[in-house]
Design a binder for these strands. Structure first.
Lengths: 113, 113
DNA sequence: GCTTCATATGCCCGTCAAGTCATATACAAG
DNA sequence: CTTGTATATGACTTGACGGGCATATGAAGC
């Protein structure tokens, strides 16, 4: 239902994902490590599963969950246009290019595109 | 109030951020480009501002908003532990390492920790 | 069969956030 | 000072989501 971003807005879900990034876990293991009621864990897992963040494999009565990368890749890609703002060395340059849009000003350094 | 992730869970806010990634904008410009009521834009900007995603500079009656990178950097950093899942070449290796944690080769036999 | 363990699901409730509309503030121009 | 423009804010409504609890499903073992 909700977007990838809404899914990871939930702190407990991010915790689950972090645990699964370390290794696969059963519901019970997550329940223990996160110290939260089992029903909550299951519900969050359902959301994560339906959004493609995790997948479950049945092992006897246990369901072992593992991470699936696609949705988080999507987030990573969304960040792309913003990275220029913190990739240090080009930072000043980019800000300048951005400002060019509004003010044709030349501080300290004569710069052209 | 809410975490960085909750802020960018809102689609309109992500749109605002994307626009600001391209260049600074006044509220009115955002209003036009996003085709949403001005009050909504202002409210989202307030949320973004208080969370450090944007900052405003006063220019006559206009407020020109610009992006601030810190919160998105935080998201970028949160992704770090997950990147190994999609950085292709090491992928198979990592999955193997992950699985090592659980089962060398023991089917149908559940084990306690 | 019944019982136990592991997980999923349904229901109810409180909370919180977003949208809408109206109004307030601030500045500029006449 | 009045009017118009630009933005912020307040009140209110609505709907979604998470937590808690009870219950259902299902597989394993007796």
């Amino acid at each position: 239902m909700e977007s990838t971003f809404a899914i990871i807005a939930e702190p407990n879900r991010r915790s689950i994902l972090s645990l699964l990034a370390a290794s696969e876990c059963s519901v019970g293991e997550l329940e223990t490590q996160l110290r939260m009621p089992q029903s909550s864990v299951s519900k969050h897992l359902r959301v994560l599963r339906e959004a493609g963040f995790v997948e479950a494999r049945v092992e006897a009565q246990r369901r072992v969950y593992r991470l699936r990368p696609e949705p988080l890749m999507e987030v990573d890609e969304w960040l792309t246009p913003f990275r220029r703002f913190w990739t240090a060395h080009v930072d000043a340059l980019e800000r300048h290019l951005d400002r060019m849009d509004k003010t044709p000003e030349t501080p300290t350094k004569g710069k052209k595109r």
